[in-house]
C-alpha cells in the first residue's frame, strides 16, 4: 500500500463511454447511406434517453436500499395513462398549431403523470415493499404481485383497449438536415433526456442531498451512524424515481402514439437489460447502458428487424463477459 507522496490520480473510467461512439461508428459501414445513419442515430439516442428516464429510479432505488422493484414498470404505464387522460381532454389545444396551446396541454399532462406515478410510488413503498426489506425472494414475488394488480386496475379504470394518442401539432413531423430526415419529437426526447441527466448529475455531485445519496449507495449503515435517517432519504428517492418513470411513460406513449397496459411490463425487460449492462445501482452506467440499448435497437431494427431485441441480449451477454458486474460496478457486491 502506498502512503506518503502522491496518490495515483483518480482515473475516470472512459472505456465504457467510448462504447457509444464505437457502436455508432461500427454500424456506419452496414448502413447504405449517411443520412439514413444520421436518422437512425438520432432515433437511437432519443430512445435511449427515454429508457434512461424510466430506468434511473430503478437503479438508484436498488443502489440505495438493495431493492429490485419488479413493479417499476407500472409507474411507466400509470404515467402514460394519466397523461393520456389529460391530453385527450384537451384535444383542442393539442391540435392547435401553436406552441403555446400545445404546451398548455402538455405541461399539465406531464405534471399529472409525474404526480400520479410519484404518489403510486409512495404508496408502493409504504404498503408493498416496506414489509419485505432485506428479503430478496419476497421482494421479487411481492412486487410481481403488485405489477399484476396495478395492471388489472389500469384495465378497470381505463379499459382494456389500446388508446391512440396523437402527438401535438408542433412536435409532429420532421425536418431535413443534410439529406437526413430528423423527427422533431426525437430531438425533443433527446433534449428532455439530457436535461434530466444533467439535473440528476448536478444533484448527485453538487448538492448535499446528492452526497448523502452517493454515500448511502455505498454504505447505508454508516450514513445512519453519521446521524442521517436513510429511510426518509430513500422514500424521497423512491418517489422521485417513480415520478421520473412516469415522465418516461408520457414520452414513450407520445413516441408510440398509443398506450396500453402492457407497456410497463414490456419496458421492464429492456430496463433490466440496461441495468445489467450499466451495473446495478450506477446512474452513469444506466445512462450509458440506455443509450447503447437505444442505438443497438435502432440499427439492428433497420438492418435485421427480427433481431432487434435479440441484439440487446447479445450486447448484455458480451458486456457481462467483459465485465461480469456491468460497465460501472457499484460498491457492494
Amino acid at each position: 500500500m502506498s502512503h506518503g507522496s502522491a496518490l495515483p490520480a483518480q482515473r475516470f473510467d472512459w472505456l465504457p463511454l467510448a462504447l457509444i461512439p464505437a457502436i455508432a461508428l461500427a454500424a456506419l459501414p452496414f448502413i447504405p447511406s449517411l443520412p439514413t445513419w444520421v436518422t437512425l442515430t438520432v432515433a437511437g439516442l432519443a430512445m435511449g434517453m427515454m429508457i434512461f428516464m424510466m430506468a434511473a429510479g430503478l437503479t438508484l432505488v436498488f443502489g440505495l436500499m438493495d431493492i429490485m422493484n419488479f413493479a417499476h414498470g407500472v409507474f411507466i404505464s400509470v404515467g402514460a395513462y394519466a397523461a393520456t387522460s389529460v391530453l385527450l381532454a384537451m384535444k383542442a389545444s393539442m391540435q392547435a398549431d401553436s406552441l403555446a396551446a400545445n404546451l398548455a396541454a402538455i405541461v399539465p399532462a406531464v405534471l399529472a403523470a409525474m404526480a400520479l406515478a410519484g404518489f403510486l410510488g409512495w404508496f408502493f413503498e409504504r404498503v408493498v415493499i416496506r414489509p419485505v426489506y432485506g428479503d430478496h425472494l419476497k421482494q421479487i414475488l411481492v412486487t410481481m404481485g403488485g405489477l399484476i394488480v396495478v395492471e388489472q386496475l389500469i384495465h378497470v379504470v381505463w379499459g382494456p383497449d389500446i388508446i391512440p394518442l396523437p402527438r401535438p401539432a408542433t412536435i409532429t413531423g420532421s425536418f431535413i438536415v443534410g439529406g437526413a430526415a430528423i423527427e422533431r419529437y426525437r430531438v425533443l426526447a433527446v433534449l428532455v433526456g439530457l436535461a434530466v441527466f444533467a439535473a440528476m448529475w448536478l444533484i448527485l455531485n453538487r448538492t448535499r442531498l446528492g452526497l448523502l445519496i452517493r454515500a448511502g449507495v455505498e454504505n447505508r449503515e454508516m450514513v445512519e451512524s453519521l446521524g442521517y435517517r436513510i429511510r426518509t432519504l430513500f422514500v424521497g428517492v423512491f418517489i422521485a424515481g417513480s415520478a421520473l418513470a412516469g415522465l418516461g411513460g408520457v414520452m414513450w406513449a407520445l413516441y408510440q402514439e398509443s398506450v396500453n397496459a402492457q407497456i410497463g411490463m414490456q419496458m421492464m425487460v429492456v430496463l433490466f437489460i440496461v441495468l445489467i449492462i450499466g451495473g446495478l445501482g450506477s446512474v452513469g452506467g444506466c445512462f450509458v447502458g440506455a443509450l447503447l440499448v437505444g442505438l443497438m435497437a435502432n440499427y439492428t431494427g433497420y438492418l435485421a428487424p427480427k433481431l432487434a431485441l435479440g441484439s440487446n441480449i447479445l450486447l448484455m451477454v458480451l458486456v457481462l463477459l467483459w465485465r461480469p458486474r456491468g460497465l460501472f460496478p457499484v460498491g457492494r457486491g
Binding site: L211, R214, E218, E221, M222, E224, S225, L226, I230, G331
Partner: peptide, 28 residues
Amino acid sequence: RTTPERARLGIAYVPENMGIFAGLTVRE
C-alpha cells in the same frame, strides 16, 4: 432509540472496516 437519533445525541462510531465512502473524496 434509532441509530441516527443516537448519532445526533453526540455518539460517533468508527467501525472495524472503517466504513469510509470510497467513491467520495476525503473532503466529501
